[in-house]
Every structure is written in structure tokens, then in C-alpha cells.
Design a protein around this nucleic acid. Structure first.
Length: 882
RNA sequence: GGGCGAUUAGCUCAGCGGUAGAGCGUCUCGUUUACACCGAGAAUGUCGGCGGUUCGAUCCCGUCAUCGCCCACCA
């Protein structure tokens, strides 16, 4: 016997372990079933489960379990990302606590330390995903720094280099002075900062007191100035173009050039040009042949290119000093408060410097072309489709991708330098040495490039590297391209676009056919949840409190929301209640011997109520499947919720109670079997959303079952289960019960009061229905009996109306006749208005001639129905008036 | 500056050319042998404003307003 309350904590761990032990999560390449595959967006090895993961993985698990139960050979490829910078930061912080740093440790020891950290405390998220019920194929778990995946990375690097799509170049990159590494454009976030705009006079060469005033937010970079630009058509400076200014504090000669980059409206219209420290200035410098002088070191301190007094100063100290000195010299014209955007590193949060270094770049523009075409052709489809626009915008304006990072944790770049700087890119050291010997004619001393690759470089290969590429494995042949990628819009550029590029380039196929983009889970104020903001809701706490199923159902039912999901705990509580409801429906079935289904043919059952619920179930199942096919998780979840709670619990179980409690016989037997069968189907249908409770009930309700629900294929539903006739009949009966209940409640008829239900105006069909559902109607509408009433008007009755039928409850001594009159009058007035509106519409020639005939017909039917109801109500009102 | 999205019941949000929906909350009634984490019923909306298209607009188009996000931008 089931308990009254479902207690998830006791059950979830046991079931999960049993599933995992039984091998139910594993793909079955030999099963002869259609393959269906999803690769997980690999969580960072440093990560712990947050609400975004919970949503992302719930949706994937719903799809995987759904397909598995449909009979597919489902592979959910799981694994983790080494998360270069993030992980290195974690371990460096630990070292700092011990008073160490990575340089003291040395590279090899440091990397070993990171591996140890990973073994001990990394990847807690993988355990937490199990708490959520994720049915991933854990035996196939991969890590981006696995041997196989690392080989894939090297292979891709070598090939792209051979094709000229990876190259080394000296150019300005985004430099993080805190982490002392280059980062990509995407890892830079622009923040609005209150700063200052300083106006500085640069004396004009060969003139005693003439000067040109430039405005800058970064006075400390003036040491790197090599020019001043003005707009070629700016009359204020026309006579200066071609001349030169003298750089204050330094005395260097600066060419004054005319360049349209200069905007006469901004600042003074004259802009100092610092090619080594500004992306725009770099371009101007190239156009006018200006030198690029780097004045900063890797930590953002002034280097030896600046006057001695400034050397070694932090850039911000240097800024203050320069301003003070300029002011003392009388060259600082004015200082304005100035709000402007300043680039910051997304990891370190420090101000990013454009810095001139040698880095490795991927020719993203070339790789992007096929990836753009794949989406244009529909080989990759975004759901929702509007994200394609975002994808196109970025891909069509894509910049070279800086992939080298000056950190230690990651894939070391497979490039070796000869004594003369010649570079040999190879799969390994031996291969590089061979190439060097061939080049130099003798064995050469090679030095490996110290840098590692951007973490996203290996993530870009994830859909095929995890399946064994570059080996031609059976898994790669069977599960690639994957069916769908489920992810958030925040990594469309970082990850989705790059997988599309790499996948197409190296496999000639798209890595996934569909990209389902879901919302981000935010806090109640709509802020992105983050540790630093301290607004994180821990999914594990919700699982502890309400169960994994309740959390999963909540997330699935909210998946339709636009770009934000504001998670409310009340909602989780509501779906916990749903789990309890399901549990108790099963408990009821168990108590009434509806638990197992020895023999029930849903196509051939005879009782209308049974045929009706079978048809309803089938429609719910179809709607659910369609919704999931279209990734409308919310519709699927809500539809099943409505069917389970509304149709099955509130109506069906109540309708069959008289039969279940009644005498032994064919009727009771069929009701038992049908209830059991429908409950069984509900467990199948809800399982992808609520795997734990459904599995537990499935196994508890029928001890003879040997296979787990998750591994049991859901039966297909034949057309013969539709039972449309039963639907028509039951809908009428249900409406009738509702009418009686409503009028009783409105008239404050005591729940315990039983009276005959007199029915007037029912045709033969309706009367047949009334007779055959008599006991159910009596129980649900709480009436003593049902009788025909075609006699004279009765006084003092409460009446409900169902189209042309009057439902009469003789209650003169119980109810307030005036209130009943008022109720009827109000209802009549409402119908009167409605009929008026419809008649206006029908009187409109244009409507009748231009609207589709079925719409016109529908309006006529509505008018007829409303008129019949109104006539009945008027009759009732008249009878009250006596 | 470019782009995207939102504005619907008290709250959180679905819907999207033809009777406005859900959950929560509110109110009324109810210890009916599955469930009070429940049951029955009720109330609440000029679907942001203004134009347009249409026989018909919450839905399509234009425009404005407010809010939010992404991209670009250290004069």
C-alpha cells in the first residue's frame, strides 16, 4: 500500500542507482533502432550545478527519455570542459592561499597540481546532474583534455595551419593585464565607467605659442603617441595638416595627419594617435605610416619606452602623474567628467589593454562561409528561428579569432620553433623534429610554443571529437550529425557558431540538425544569476525540498518564456503538489484493484466513460508528441498536467467510482482494467518529465514487472482509440454536471442536500445518456435521482440550462427565490448581449459574403445555441414569478 | 549608432486573425472511505497608446512610449 504522501528523497537515489547499474542510460548501437543523439554542452570542470544547468539538462533529458521510450537508440553524450582560464584561476587562488604562485611551482608541477585538483574536487557538477535525474551515457563520459580529444585538437590545429587557416601574426589583441594573457573579442565585456576627458595642448612644431588641443581619456598613453589626426575637411586645422606637433613630456615629433577617422564633433576634433594601444589608432597608423610604440608591459606597467620617472609605474599611477605634470606645465587645458565604455575582461574584471603581441589566429571568415550557408539552406535550423538573425549578423562580420592564451592549463599549441624562429607545426615533438631536420638538413634544437589554446577551440570540436574523431569509429558513423543541440543564447557565438564552422570543415557535415535555444534563468529581478552577485538559487536545495521531478516539471513548463525565466519557488511547490496528486491517484487505483492491467483492449472497451478517457488520453499523447517534436516543452508539460489532473483525476476517477464500488461484474471489471491502463499510459507519458515518481509507481503498482519504466518502450496508439462518439456523449454529461454544480454553489445549496434532478426538454439521445450515466451523475452532481419532467411549470425550483434542456432542482424550501431570480435575469441579460453581437455580425453583408463559410456557420450555431439557452432561462424565470 | 525582445487577470507568464487562458493569490462552500500538497464553485482583463490593413485585430503593418538584452564604441 502506497503512503499518502510521495517522499522523493527516499526514492530518487535508489532508483537512479538502479537505472545506472542496469545499463539503462547506455546507447544501444546494436539494437537496430533509429539513432537519436544529443551532446551535452560540457559544463566547466570547475562548475557546480546552477539553475541554468538544471534547465538545460532537464530539457535534454526530456528529449532523450522521450525518444528512448519511443524506441530510439538514444545517445546522450556527456562530458566536461577543462575551462582553461577558469580552472587555472581556481588553482592559482589555492596556491596563493599557500603563499605560492605558479611560477614558483613551475609549469609541469602546476599542471600536475591542476589534474590533482580535478581528480579531487573537480566535476562535482557531474554528480549533481545525477540528482536531477539526467540519463546520460556516463560510460562514454569525455573530458576536453582526454588523450583522444587532445589528439583531435592537435589534428585540427595542424590541418588548419597546413591550409593557411591558422596563422601567427603580430597585431593588437585584447590583453588582460591581470591574467597576463590575450583573450578573444568575445571575452571582453564593455562596461560604462565614470571617467574624465582631459584636454591637452600639444605645441606646434616651429611655433612659439601655437598648439593643437587633443582630448583623451587615457593621458598615460601619450608616451606612445606617434601622430595627431584631424578631419581632412575640418577648417579649424586645415593649415596644420602635413605639419607636426611636439609631444609634451617627451618632445617627440608627431605628424599631424588628415584622416576621416577623426570626428570634428567629438572632443576638439583633433585626436592623438597611439597605434600600439588603440584599435582605431592602429588602423590610422597603418594608413599614414606612423610607428607603433608599445609603452606597457604585460602587467600594465609602463615599460622602458617612457621617461625614466614613469618606468615601472602602473598605468593608472602613470595616468595621475602625467596629468599632474601636464597641469604643472600649463598644458592641461581642462578636465571634464566623462562617462564612457571601457573594455573589461569577463573573467578577471580588469581593464583590457589593446596590446601588440604575436598570437595565433584562426581565419574565421573563411570557416564561417560554409557555416552561414548551412543555416541559410536549412541544414541547421534554429528554434526559435529568430536566433538565426543573431547568428548571421555575427558570422557575416566575423573577425580573426585569437586562439592563443598565455596560460598553462589547456592544450599546448603544437608548434615548435627552430633556432632562427622558423615554426614547425606538428602532431608531436617527433614529427616536428623530423620536419626541422628536413628543413635544416640536420637535427635542430626546437622550442615548443609555450601558449595554450582558447578553451573554446576544443569545445568547437565537441560533437565529433567525443565520438572518436579523427578515428572513423562506429559511433561517429552512427550518431553524427547529432539531432539537436540544446543551449542558451549566451553561447551562440562562443560555441554554436564555432561548432558549426569546425564541424563543417572537418566532417563535411553539420554537427547538429537543430539548435534549440532556451532562455536564461534569472533571479526575480531579472538579473543573471551569478556567484559574484550572490543571487544564485541552488537547484539542489529545491530538489531537497520538493524533489527532482517537481523542479524538472517546473523548468519544462516554463521553457516557453522569452529570454528570461524568473524562477518562482511557488511554482515548484505547485508541481510538487502535482506529483502528490499523481501519487494519490495511483494509490486510489491500488486500493481499488486498478493497479495492473491483466487484459484490457483500449480499442474494444464498451463503456462510454472508458472509451472517452481512452480517446482523451490518445489526444493528450498526440498533442504531447507534437509539442516535443517542435520543442514546445511547456505545451507538452501543461497538456499532460491538464490531462492527468483535470481529465483523469477530477473527472474519470470520479465517474467510475460508482462502478468500482459497485457489484462484481463486467462493468466493474472493465472500469478497473481501463483505469489501470490509463494510469499506466500516464506513467509512460509523464516519465520524460518526472522520471522518478513515474518509475517508482510503475514498479510498485505491478510487482511482476521486470523491466524499468525508463527502459520500456511506450506503446503506439492506434487510430481506433480515438472514440469520437464517446467524446460527444461525455462532454455533454460533463457539462451537465458542471451546470448543476455551479447553480448549487451559486445558490448556496448545502453540499449535503440531495434532491431529485428533473430534466425537461431532453431528446431521446440525451435521455439515453442520462440513464446510462445515472449513478455517476447522481454522485458528481449530488442529486438523489434523475427523472423526466415534461409537466406543467413548477414553482420554487432552481434551474440550470444546458442548451435546449432544463435541469430543475426542486428546492423551494432551501433557497432564496429572489436571488435565483436575480441570477437568472443576469444570465439572460448576458446572453441577450451576446446574441445581439452575433446578430450584428450576421446582418453585415460583407461578413456573410467574405468570411469563410464555416466561420459564418459557426456564428449561426452560436446564435441558435444562445437563443435556446435564453429561452429556457426565460421559462425558468417565468415559473419563479409564478 | 546597429540589432533583438518584452508590455495580456493582484503576481509570474502562456496564447496569437473569428467566444481572452494557466499557475499562484483572493473570495464562497466542503472532514463525499485517493489526495486539505485536496474537492466544488466564483470574482478579476478598453490584451501599453495612437493610426492602418481586414468582413473581423490581443494577434498582421506603421508609429510612439516604457522596460530589458546583444553587438559596436576608452577622443
Amino acid at each position: 500500500m502506497l503512503d499518502k504522501i510521495y517522499t522523493p528523497a527516499e526514492i530518487e537515489a535508489r532508483l537512479y542507482a538502479a537505472w545506472e547499474d542496469s545499463g539503462a542510460f547506455a546507447c544501444r548501437p546494436d539494437a537496430g533502432a533509429r539513432p537519436y543523439s544529443i551532446v551535452i554542452p560540457p559544463p566547466n570542470v570547475t562548475g557546480s550545478l546552477h539553475m541554468g544547468h538544471a534547465l538545460n539538462n532537464t530539457l535534454q533529458d526530456v528529449l532523450i527519455r522521450h525518444r528512448r521510450k519511443q524506441g530510439c537508440d538514444a545517445l546522450w553524450q556527456v562530458g566536461m570542459d577543462h575551462a582553461g582560464i577558469a580552472t587555472q584561476m581556481v588553482v592559482e587562488r589555492q596556491l596563493a592561499d599557500e603563499g605560492l604562485d605558479r611560477n614558483a611551482l613551475g609549469r609541469d608541477a602546476f599542471i600536475e597540481r591542476v589534474w590533482n585538483w580535478k581528480a579531487e574536487s573537480g566535476g562535482s557538477i557531474i554528480r549533481q546532474l545525477r540528482r536531477l535525474g539526467a540519463s546520460a551515457d556516463w560510460a562514454r563520459e569525455r573530458f576536453t583534455m582526454d588523450e583522444g580529444l587532445s589528439a583531435a585538437v592537435r589534428k585540427v590545429f595542424v590541418e588548419l595551419h597546413r591550409e593557411g587557416l591558422i596563422y601567427r601574426d603580430k597585431r593588437l589583441v585584447n590583453w588582460d593585464t591581470h591574467l597576463r594573457t590575450a583573450i578573444s573579442d568575445l571575452e571582453v565585456e564593455q562596461r560604462e565607467i565614470d571617467g574624465f576627458l582631459w584636454y591637452i595642448d600639444y605645441p606646434i612644431e616651429g611655433s612659439k605659442n601655437k598648439h593643437i588641443t587633443v582630448a583623451t581619456t587615457r593621458p598615460e598613453t601619450l608616451f606612445g603617441d606617434t601622430g595627431v589626426a584631424v578631419h581632412p575637411e575640418d577648417p579649424r586645422y586645415a593649415d596644420l595638416v602635413g605639419g607636426a606637433a611636439i609631444l609634451p613630456l617627451v618632445g617627440r615629433r608627431l605628424a599631424i595627419v588628415g584622416d576621416t577617422y577623426s570626428d570634428p564633433e567629438r572632443g576638439t576634433g583633433a585626436v592623438k594617435i597611439t597605434p600600439a594601444h588603440d584599435f582605431n589608432d592602429f588602423e590610422v597608423g597603418v594608413r599614414h605610416g606612423l610607428a607603433a610604440i608599445n609603452v606597457l608591459d604585460a602587467s600594465g606597467r609602463m615599460n622602458d619606452e617612457v621617461p625614466e620617472a614613469y618606468r615601472g609605474l602602473d598605468r593608472f599611477e602613470a595616468r595621475a602623474k602625467a596629468v599632474a605634470e601636464l597641469e604643472a606645465l600649463g598644458l592641461l587645458v581642462k578636465t571634464e567628467p566623462h562617462r564612457h565604455v571601457v573594455p573589461h575582461g569577463d573573467r578577471s574584471g580588469s581593464v583590457i589593454e589593446p596590446w601588440l603581441t604575436d598570437q595565433w589566429f584562426v581565419d574565421a571568415e573563411t570557416l564561417a562561409k560554409p557555416a552561414i550557408e548551412a543555416v541559410e539552406r536549412g541544414d541547421i535550423v534554429f528554434v526559435p528561428k529568430n536566433w538565426e538573425k543573431t547568428y548571421f549578423e555575427w558570422m557575416r562580420n566575423i573577425q580573426p579569432w585569437c586562439v592563443s592564451r598565455q596560460i598553462w592549463w589547456g592544450h599546448q599549441i603544437p608548434a615548435w620553433y627552430g633556432p632562427d624562429g622558423m615554426v614547425f607545426v606538428a602532431m608531436d615533438e617527433t614529427e616536428a623534429a623530423d620536419a626541422a631536420r628536413a628543413h635544416y638538413g640536420e637535427t635542430a634544437t626546437l622550442t615548443r610554443d609555450a601558449d595554450v589554446l582558447d578553451t573554446w577551440f576544443s569545445s568547437a570540436l565537441w560533437p565529433f571529437s567525443t565520438l572518436g574523431w579523427p578515428e572513423e569509429t562506429p559511433e561517429l558513423a552512427r550518431y553524427y550529425p547529432t539531432d539537436v543541440l540544446v543551449t542558451g543564447f549566451d553561447i551562440i557565438f562562443f560555441w554554436v557558431a564555432r561548432m558549426a564552422m569546425m564541424g563543417l570543415h572537418f566532417t563535411d557535415e553539420v554537427p547538429f540538425r537543430t539548435v534549440y535555444i532556451h532562455a536564461l534563468v534569472r533571479d526575480e529581478k531579472g538579473q543573471k544569476m551569478s556567484k559574484s552577485k550572490g543571487n544564485v538559487i541552488d537547484p539542489l536545495e529545491l530538489i531537497d525540498r520538493y524533489g527532482a521531478d517537481a523542479l524538472r516539471f517546473t523548468l519544462a513548463s516554463m521553457a516557453a518564456q522569452g529570454r528570461d525565466i524568473k524562477l518562482s519557488e511557488k511554482r515548484v511547490e505547485g508541481y510538487r503538489n502535482f506529483a502528490t496528486k499523481l501519487w494519490n491517484a495511483a494509490r486510489f487505483c491500488e486500493m481499488n484493484e486498478c493497479a495492473s492491467t491483466p487484459s484490457f483492449d483500449p480499442a474494444a472497451c464498451s463503456q462510454t466513460v472508458n472509451r472517452w478517457i481512452v480517446g482523451e488520453l490518445m489526444r493528450a499523447a498526440e498533442a504531447g508528441d507534437e509539442a516535443l517534436d517542435a520543442f514546445r516543452f511547456n505545451d507538452a508539460a501543461n497538456g499532460l498536467y491538464q490531462f492527468t489532473w483535470g481529465s483523469f483525476c477530477d473527472w474519470y476517477l470520479e465517474l467510475v467510482k460508482p462502478m468500482l464500488y459497485g457489484p462484481e461484474g463486467a462493468e466493474r471489471a472493465e472500469a478497473r482494467a481501463c483505469a489501470a491502463w490509463v494510469l499506466d499510459q500516464i506513467l509512460h507519458l509523464l516519465h520524460p518529465f518526472m522520471p522518478f515518481i513515474t518509475e517508482e509507481l510503475w514498479q510498485r503498482l505491478d510487482a511482476t514487472r521486470t523491466e524499468a519504466l525508463m527502459a520500456t518502450r511506450r506503446p503506439p496508439y492506434a487510430e481506433a482509440l480515438r472514440h469520437e462518439d464517446a467524446g460527444r456523449e461525455m462532454n455533454w454529461v460533463l457539462r451537465l454536471v458542471s451546470e448543476v454544480r455551479a447553480v448549487r454553489a451559486e445558490m448556496n445549496v448545502p453540499a449535503a442536500a440531495r434532491m431529485p434532478l428533473l430534466v425537461r426538454g431532453a431528446g431521446e439521445e440525451h435521455w439515453t445518456w442520462l440513464k446510462s450515466h445515472g449513478p455517476s451523475i447522481e454522485a458528481l452532481a449530488r442529486v438523489a435521482s434523475i427523472a423526466r419532467d415534461e409537466g406543467v411549470a413548477r414553482f420554487g425550483c432552481v434551474q440550470a440550462v444546458l442548451d435546449e434542456v432544463s435541469l430543475i432542482l426542486p428546492l423551494a424550501d432551501v433557497i432564496d427565490l429572489e436571488a435565483e431570480q436575480a441570477r437568472l435575469a443576469k444570465e439572460i441579460a448576458r446572453l441577450h448581449d451576446e446574441i445581439g453581437k452575433i446578430e450584428n455580425k450576421l446582418a453585415n453583408d460583407k461578413f456573410v459574403s467574405r468570411a469563410p463559410p464555416e466561420v459564418v456557420e459557426e456564428q449561426r450555431e452560436r446564435r441558435g445555441s444562445a437563443a435556446r439557452t435564453r429561452a429556457r432561462l426565460e421559462e425558468a424565470l417565468a415559473s419563479l414569478a409564478g
